[in-house]
């Protein structure tokens, strides 16, 4: 009888845990700004939050040409293999985020502000919607 009870209790906690993962871990439909880029090439593995790049904020200040032609950013989310060494070396984000043109790299959490586990994506891009239509549970 006691065994049965403990078994039942174990089952119940299991069900509750599963529910918790569904309710809390699974992120409900994100509603971020169109064009926000989440870059999670190395962040999760390094124990940092993924970086979020707000396209809208940058295009109000710089034309596409500055980053995508002059600085050599490929037009592919996660396709530039950016890491902090390159940034501190003045490449990619580091061309401006050096304390001269924009704030410097010590403000970790301003970029690394994504929810842990968010995959690399251009948020709300057509391909992102096609591959993962709104309302379907995320995998």
């Amino acid at each position: 009888m006691k065994r049965l009870l403990s078994l039942m209790r174990g089952l119940a906690t299991g069900v509750v845990l599963a529910l918790c993962t569904v309710l809390f871990v699974d992120i409900p439909d994100a509603q971020a700004e169109y064009g926000d880029v989440v870059i999670n090439n190395y962040s999760d593995a390094a124990g940092m939050r993924p970086a979020v790049f707000p396209h809208w904020f940058h295009r109000m200040r710089f034309r596409c040409k500055v980053c995508h032609a002059d600085l050599g950013f490929k037009m592919k989310a996660g396709g530039n293999e950016i890491n902090m060494v390159k940034i501190i070396d003045g490449q990619f984000c580091g061309a401006c985020h050096n304390g001269d043109i924009a704030w410097s790299v010590e403000n970790c959490n301003l970029c690394h502000s994504g929810k842990p586990g968010t995959q690399t994506q251009v948020h709300e891009s057509t391909i992102h919607k096609l591959a993962q239509p709104a309302g379907t549970p995320k995998k």
């Binding site: 994100a30 700004e33 403000n107 994504g114 929810k115």
Partner: peptide, 19 residues
């Protein structure tokens, strides 16, 4: 939506609230 409510920023990060 503002960053803390947009679903991809982590509301528990201080940086999120500074954006």
């Amino acid at each position: 939506l503002p960053p803390p409510e947009d679903g991809i920023h982590d509301p528990s990060s201080d940086g999120t609230h500074a954006l």
